[in-house]
Nucleic acid binder design. Sequence first.
DNA 1: ACCTGAACACCGTTCAAGT
DNA 2: ACCTGAACACCGTTCAAGT
Lengths: 187, 187
Amino acid sequence: MSTSIANAPYHHGNLRQALLEAALMILEKEGEAGLGLRDLARAVGVSPAAPYRHFDSRAALLEALAVTGYQRFTGLMQAVASSDTLDPMTAMGRIYVKFALDNPNLFRLMFSPVLRRDNRPGLQMAAHAAYQTLRHVTGQDLASGRVAALAAWARVHGLAVLLLDGQIAMEAGEDIEALVTAIIDQR
Amino acid sequence: MSTSIANAPYHHGNLRQALLEAALMILEKEGEAGLGLRDLARAVGVSPAAPYRHFDSRAALLEALAVTGYQRFTGLMQAVASSDTLDPMTAMGRIYVKFALDNPNLFRLMFSPVLRRDNRPGLQMAAHAAYQTLRHVTGQDLASGRVAALAAWARVHGLAVLLLDGQIAMEAGEDIEALVTAIIDQR
DNA sequence: ACCTGAACACCGTTCAAGT
DNA sequence: ACCTGAACACCGTTCAAGT
């Protein structure tokens, strides 16, 4: 087996995928500011110019990461929508917050002004798809329509952001999951 | 009048203040990523190394900007708290969102992970002061205590962030102020 | 077709030297 | 005490050249 499939790494394989995987790890470990193209190339064992064969720019790489984030997020939301949960609003909110806490830097990147500056149709489509499923779930549950749906969304999103930023201090012996559920169920 | 007070600019005056003012303008115009120390020095007409006499690093400069943001924000909140508005919760929420929309990049900086990474006691103190007044107002109005206060805060903060990111699409002829009020008043 | 090596124009930051 | 000039070690990005 001179050219086995098992050990034919990115040197002459799919560098793009390897870059994305390494970038995701660096992003979650170091944050967006710590994710340099040269660092990334080094981590993957490739020259500084090599990533440009697969991504037009650092921003394009970040966009690709954010898009995969939205796709995973959408998948989670759709799972809630298609399950026959008694209270889909609550279930959605809890998963929304859980996703943010499980992938803090990816979540931040998805909403980062770094990407929203210029036109990024791929990103906007991915974001739109995610919010479609969101609207679908909230629309099912809420009779009062748009304003109530936006209020619920704002509360869940704000909760996720504030928790991520460490702005909501925990009291002694308080369970974060319980607090999240209590805040989401607040009427 | 050889050395009039009027035209004795930063060349031999208070460079620190001039830097902060120029930085605030650049921040709001270009965003945090567009605020370089060298650009700033150029804008103020001073050498690239000059700002280091007043700020230890770029991060320290950003922190100073965020602190002034929190101070202005706190001032607005205290004005609401000390006024005898009938519905302080609603008034607070509207001013919270208005502040974010009026100073989008400053508001983003105040909550940016760039600053929250390392220990920045000055920032944390300024943020704490702001949230003390917030808690004070919400505490007055809400009988149900902590969870309700956090839910209200999360909703207002989330609303501000989503509006800032352009995630909440306006319907035809819709007034943004009216929508904000409607969402905040949603019970 | 995909990657390397070397270069370009920038950064933030430091430090001796000027006034 | 406050600022300048020049330098250092980095970036992101480009481009000719290699395989």
